Computed example of a mutant assay.
Amino acid sequence: MAKPNKKQPTKTVDIYCAKCKSQLFKYRKGGKGALVKCFKERIVEDFTTESCKCPSCGQEFARDTLVRGTPAYKIIGGKVTMK
């Protein structure tokens, strides 16, 4: 399997909880598709205190996994929004 690109994308997006609208991550996203997974190495700022849980409402928004041999968060559909 191919690894994610070594060269980091330049475009950053803000990721928010869909329930309470609090900011979760500032993330370097490549491409223009939907947010399905977040590679941990691409997270610029992490506003969460506990892994995969919203700091405000406590809702679980992702699962901790390995994607192509790289640690990542697999986003649960409809739990986050991005701007």
Rank of each mutant, 00 (worst) to 15 (best):
K53D: 05
V80M: 05
T49E: 12
E50D: 15
G30W: 09
R68V: 14
D64A: 00
T70Q: 06
P71D: 01
T65W: 09
K37G: 05
I15N: 04
K83N: 14
T10F: 05
G33F: 09
V13F: 08
T70G: 03
P9E: 02
T12F: 01
R68Y: 10
V13Y: 01
E50A: 15
T81W: 05
C17H: 07
T12D: 10
S56H: 14
C17D: 13
T49Y: 05
A72M: 09
V80W: 01
I43A: 01
A72F: 00
V80Q: 02
P55D: 00
Q59A: 08
Y27E: 07
R68K: 15
A72T: 03
E60V: 15
K53Y: 08
T70H: 11
K32Q: 11
P71A: 04
L24R: 02
E45A: 05
G58V: 02
K7W: 07
G30I: 13
V67M: 03
S56G: 08
F47M: 15
L24E: 09
K79Q: 11
I43E: 00
R28A: 12
G77Q: 15
G78W: 07
D14V: 06
R63V: 12
K74M: 12
E60A: 15
D64I: 04
L66V: 15
G58F: 07
C38S: 10
G33L: 01
T49S: 15
C17G: 14
K6R: 07
A72L: 02
P4G: 07
A34K: 08
T10N: 06
G58H: 12
G69T: 13
K19Y: 15
T65V: 14
G77D: 07
A62M: 03
Q8R: 02
K7S: 07
M82W: 11
K53T: 10
K3Q: 13
E45M: 03
E50R: 07
F61R: 09
V67D: 02
E45F: 00
T49H: 13
K74W: 14
K7P: 02
T10W: 03
F47Q: 15
I75Y: 04
D14P: 06
V44N: 11
G33I: 00
P4M: 12
G69P: 08
V13S: 05
N5M: 11
Y27F: 04
P4Y: 06
K37P: 09
K26W: 03
C38T: 11
K29D: 05
C54Q: 11
K19F: 13
C57L: 02
G31H: 04
V80E: 00
Q59R: 03
P55Y: 03
N5D: 09
Y16H: 12
A2W: 13
N5A: 13
A34T: 14
V13L: 06
C52E: 06
K7L: 14
A18L: 01
Q8K: 15
A34H: 04
K3I: 07
T70Y: 04
K83Y: 10
V80D: 01
R68C: 12
P71T: 00
T70K: 11
T70E: 11
C17Y: 06
S56L: 08
V36P: 13
M1H: 13
R42K: 12
Q59P: 03
T48I: 02
K74F: 06
A2F: 08
K79M: 11
K32C: 14
G69N: 09
T12E: 10
T65P: 13
C54V: 05
K29Q: 14
